[in-house]
Simulated scan of single mutants.
Amino acid sequence: MEIVSEKSDLDYREKIQRNIEKIKSDIPDDVTLVAVTKMHTVNETQAVVDAGVYDLGENREQDLMAKKDKIQGPVRWHFIGHLQTNKVKYLVGQVALIHSISSMKLINKVETESEKKDVVTDILLQFNLADEDTKSGFDATELDAAVSRVAQCAHIRLRGLMCIGPMTENSDKIHKIFAQLKQMYDKIKITYKNGDNEIDTLSMGMTNDYPIAVEEGATMIRVGRKIFER
């Protein structure tokens, strides 16, 4: 029984590697693949790293922290899920990038916790451009105010913008949302701190829509299901 189990595990690791190779073949070299490892075991997550993907995304703070010290390799951890203010203190200083800063309250909390730990935290501002009740995020009209607030924070480094594509199979609507975020990204890249900034990340696109996101200028995609499908 153990031999069968080990073979099955090896087969699955090889499938994960093939899945990753397929995704990488679909995207330009300058687009970063973040593997979304939520709900996957340490062994499955390690298989992703062993396949050469070092950017890992988790949706829950407790899951990220539980895996963080168990995964071997030069991993860059990304927090990509809905963020509660009471969880910020656990993430500051522990992750490479927080994608889901979706309110002024969160900006203020990240600044406070980062100052306490004497670190600078890299963030993305999340926008809910599809105006869907199930998603968090700033409205497009709040871009200037959110960016201005971050500019006042000595312990936050704005790296760019993030959104989740709309829940639809209508590719035109998906294109429209991603194109809108790209326009916003291009704007702040020029205007934020008069262009003297480190904005380089446009995080959009998941398993169902990452090809569209790449077409519209994404520099980072977040893919889970397509990596782990058997």
Rank of each mutant, 00 (worst) to 15 (best):
D122G: 07
I123F: 05
C153Y: 05
G57C: 02
D11N: 13
K7W: 02
L64M: 11
T219F: 03
S136G: 09
D131A: 12
S8A: 15
N19T: 08
D69R: 07
R157V: 08
V92C: 00
G217I: 04
D118T: 08
R159Y: 01
V92E: 01
L97C: 07
N86G: 09
P211Y: 09
C163A: 15
V88H: 00
A154T: 13
T112V: 12
F79M: 15
A96W: 13
G81A: 10
A66C: 11
I80D: 00
T112F: 15
D122P: 01
R159M: 11
I80V: 11
I80E: 04
D209W: 13
D118I: 07
E111P: 04
K67W: 05
I212H: 02
K7E: 14
D133I: 11
V119Y: 06
V120N: 10
Q46V: 11
K116I: 11
R13G: 02
G52K: 01
K193V: 08
I221N: 11
D118A: 11
G205E: 05
G195W: 08
V95H: 01
V223M: 04
K135S: 11
V49N: 01
Q46M: 02
A66W: 12
I23N: 10
T41P: 09
I123E: 08
S100T: 07
I71L: 10
K38T: 08
R76Y: 07
L161F: 03
K7D: 13
E113H: 04
V120K: 00
E6K: 15
L91G: 10
A96K: 14
W77C: 05
K193L: 13
E198F: 12
E111S: 03
P28D: 07
D50L: 01
D139E: 13
L10M: 13
F178G: 00
G73A: 03
G137P: 09
A213D: 05
N170S: 09
S148M: 06
D172Y: 12
M39W: 13
A213M: 03
E58W: 09
E198N: 14
S8C: 13
K24H: 10
I71C: 09
E216V: 07
N108I: 02
I177N: 08
D55H: 15
S103W: 14
N128K: 03
A146I: 03
D26T: 09
E113P: 00
V92A: 01
I101L: 13
S8T: 14
I199W: 01
P28Q: 04
K226I: 03
R230Y: 12
L64F: 01
M206H: 06
N86K: 06
A47G: 15
V36T: 03
H155A: 00
A96H: 15
Q84L: 10
S5M: 15
Q183N: 12
N128H: 00
G205H: 01
S103N: 07
A213T: 08
Q94S: 15
I156H: 07
E6Q: 15
L124H: 10
K70S: 12
L143E: 09
Y210W: 07
K135T: 03
N208R: 06
V120A: 08
F79W: 00
M167A: 14
V49W: 10
V147I: 09
K173L: 14
D29H: 10
K109M: 05
I71W: 07
P74M: 03
D9E: 14
V150E: 02
I71R: 01
R157M: 13
L83G: 11
E169D: 15
A47K: 06
H78I: 00
